[in-house]
Amino acid sequence: MTQFFQVVILGLSLGGIYALMATGLTLIFGVMRIINLAHGVFMLFAAYITLLLFNNFQIDPILSILITMPLMFFLGVGIYKTLFPRIIDSPRYMEMTILLAFGLAMIVEGGLGFFFTGIYRSVNPSYAIEIFQFGTFYIPKAQLFGTLVSILLLGLLWALLNYTRIGYAVRATMQNRAAAQIVGVNVERVSTIAFGLGMALAGAAGSLLSVLFTFFPAKHWQWIAILMSLIVLGGLGSLMGAFTGALLLAVAAALVSHYLGPTWQPITFFLALFLVLLIKPEGLFGKKMEEG
């Protein structure tokens, strides 16, 4: 039993980081109906930036969030403004955004491969191999820090969404885009900011990822697949859903990995994805898909 709880603790301490990753993706989907297949590659992009900052300037990877987040925010704003408004009136908008994001992912992956080659990397601050011991249980320090930072960031996002004018506008646009326009929300501006925010979260997640996982440019396909399963379980476009889905699957994956072996771990996510689509396609917190 002790071992079971230990595994659950390890799962939860990764769950917070998964939640951070998934929230950015689901935020972008919720506001703009864009399935941002490039979310994973932008996390890796931020991970490489973190690596550069650590290797060249000895900046702590967790602290480097202060750099990667704003950087990715403005990158997101730029990408959104350059690429998306020109297709917004297309009747095939949704399909086009998927292809656009897919193409973007290929380009960034290629760029990362060119500059950093395909070898496995990770950022190794001193605490990367240390653990916290409490009683019979332990948590790797990096995982604990990562999850605490994730929860802090998600809390800030929650406060932003619930207590600021722009936050109200973002939520309103997610819930009813046409009505948001009717009450005078400039939905294009909200979309730009939301895309930037989603990318900023990808940036933070990337910095944390760089300590916790090894990475190489093509690794993002695996990440985006995992993230898709998290947000589909929670319900596409639901922030609460992304959070819950992330915690549930992180724990499930940890348990599978412990009792069946690490090779079975990735399949936890995809099995969950299949089952959700089969049984409850709208996910735990999602709305039934509307037409169009």
């Binding site: 939520r171 309103a172 009813n176 046409a178 009505a179």
Partner: peptide, 8 residues
């Protein structure tokens, strides 16, 4: 159909 924000 009112155009409300259902979860607000």
């Amino acid at each position: 159909e009112r155009g409300l924000f259902p979860d607000m």
